[in-house]
Design a protein around this nucleic acid. Sequence first.
DNA 1: TTTTAAGTTGACCACCTTGGTCTACTAGTT
DNA 2: AACTAGTAGACCAAGGTGGTCAACTTAAAA
Lengths: 228, 228
Amino acid sequence: MLINDTFENLDLKKKNRIINAALQEFSEEGYERASTNRIVKAAGIGKGMLFYYFQNKQSLYHYLLNYSLDLTLNDFLDRIDTSEKDFINRMYQIARLKVKLFAAHPSIMYFLSSFMLEKEITLPDDINEKFHKLQTLGYSKMYEDIDYSLFRQDIDPAKAFQLIQWSIDGYQEELKQRLIGKNVHSIHFEQYWQEFYDYLSVLRTAFYHKEEGKYDNIASESSDKEVW
Amino acid sequence: MLINDTFENLDLKKKNRIINAALQEFSEEGYERASTNRIVKAAGIGKGMLFYYFQNKQSLYHYLLNYSLDLTLNDFLDRIDTSEKDFINRMYQIARLKVKLFAAHPSIMYFLSSFMLEKEITLPDDINEKFHKLQTLGYSKMYEDIDYSLFRQDIDPAKAFQLIQWSIDGYQEELKQRLIGKNVHSIHFEQYWQEFYDYLSVLRTAFYHKEEGKYDNIASESSDKEVW
DNA sequence: TTTTAAGTTGACCACCTTGGTCTACTAGTT
DNA sequence: AACTAGTAGACCAAGGTGGTCAACTTAAAA
């Protein structure tokens, strides 16, 4: 992946400039159309250096992918608290982590999305394995140890799972569209979390059986100090 | 758009070969990256002919877009029956029309999806107007004249609308993923409509207030003779 | 101070693809 | 025979590609 450790020992600002320039180029253009010329230009380094750090374009791509997967594991999956047995609460928690991750590392998230759309990419075994392990882990972190007894008894819980999942995905997707182009720092996330919370309340009413007053306060992690 | 009517008077098979080759190329590659060389090759015509029919690449694109919008209006929007006041039934009807359209003209649907993702496209006024009229019409065909009284009274109908909408979109998206690469004629649509129907039943149970037995048979258009 | 080595640059290369033109050709009609 | 609409594809200048390499700078070692 890397020719030597020159790149890893680089000044952190420079290193990040290069990584971000590359992530952005690859996610906007896809692997094939991505231009190493534009990458070095955006990163503010000479063309030669890129190929001094990385053997070729492909190595660079693999490096970025590996880097992104590691970050997803550490900053997202490993932080999901599976002791939360309420499915809707679990989803709420995951949504917050997702948004947090997106706000902190947007270019990485865009890069991973674009990677998922690539068709003709072949990966070295180790990265491929890492990727699939992550997928499996993600799946279990979402669905394992859920308390089925909360669901209405006249509804198939598996179907309820799916419908709730799709609803949340739909909301997130729409929110993404609505926020496109806005400056991340100018967004008042509170307001959107409130809106999201309202939708979750409706889902609770619709899919759980009634237990008056039990879930008035959904945000168990309300000790959060961040704005979003 | 067209230089003269030579293209419209073309042998229908040839005309469709060209249209489909172009639709496919544009949807797979996007406007900029699409190659007129590949289009003529796939269509089995000489390079010269494309520019004999169309002034340039842009004219061709505009022609295709106009063509696709017309078809969407005639084969989809105009066929939505707004006398159906039940939101879930309306959505069911729309889903069937969508799938029908997709099966009959997949390349057009892919083309329109890809067009929606284009960022730097500017359209001539007439096409732009047609596009926006279609959007408005589509919106009203989906949400106009819906019977709110069917919804549970402890749930905000606007939110229920959205959640049902997102659920259906989610199902369709997942189905698309599952069916990717399969031969369209080998698919047993019956089975998927049944599955879809089951999800809609759940949504009905969750979001409508109880009226025993009233909606056992959702498919009012069960006189359909088609396989799907 | 001199030598060596690591880090860095961008001009350069051979190659490929692009949208569009134009000459030459065919086939059918007058 | 003359004309014309339809057709093909070689050709063009322009511009981009991933990758190389000789030349240069900087800094540490001897």
